[in-house]
Design a protein around this nucleic acid. Structure first.
Length: 108
DNA sequence: ATTCTGACGTGGG
DNA sequence: CCCCACGCCAGAA
């Protein structure tokens, strides 16, 4: 059994995000025990780059803002993916964010 | 080894 | 709610 690096930990949580739901970097980081280092979570997503089955488009910042949309291929790919799942997105802001928020430490 | 950056979060004003 | 500053830690040059 090889040990899970920081990335794999993040991927493991991200893959468990239910369809039509979203979560924040901080929530994942906190669940990993890396609370405060939320940046590492987002960075791990960038490292995945779609290479893994990580639904990075379901991960946003605590404000429900699609801060990382620029890292996706197009300029609105992330938004389209979210809307494709039934999530309403207004510009870079997710509507009903509180309602769609999925807390790994709480619901997992 | 050092330096810088970064898909964030929190606190103060 | 906005804006500003600091902290966080892993990786690249």
């Amino acid at each position: 059994m090889k040990e899970e690096g920081f990335f794999e930990k993040v991927y493991h949580i991200a893959r468990q995000i239910p369809y039509g739901r979203v979560t924040s970097y901080g929530a994942i980081a906190k669940h990993l025990g890396a609370s405060g280092s939320a940046r590492m979570v987002g960075w791990a997503m960038n490292a995945s780059g779609g290479k893994e089955d990580v639904p990075a488009h379901r991960v946003v910042n605590r404000k429900g803002l699609l801060t990382g949309k620029h890292h996706f291929e197009g300029t609105n790919l992330m938004q389209q993916l979210l809307e494709s799942e039934g999530i309403s997105v207004r510009g870079n802001q997710i509507q009903n964010f509180e309602q769609l928020f999925w807390d790994p430490a709480k619901e997992l």
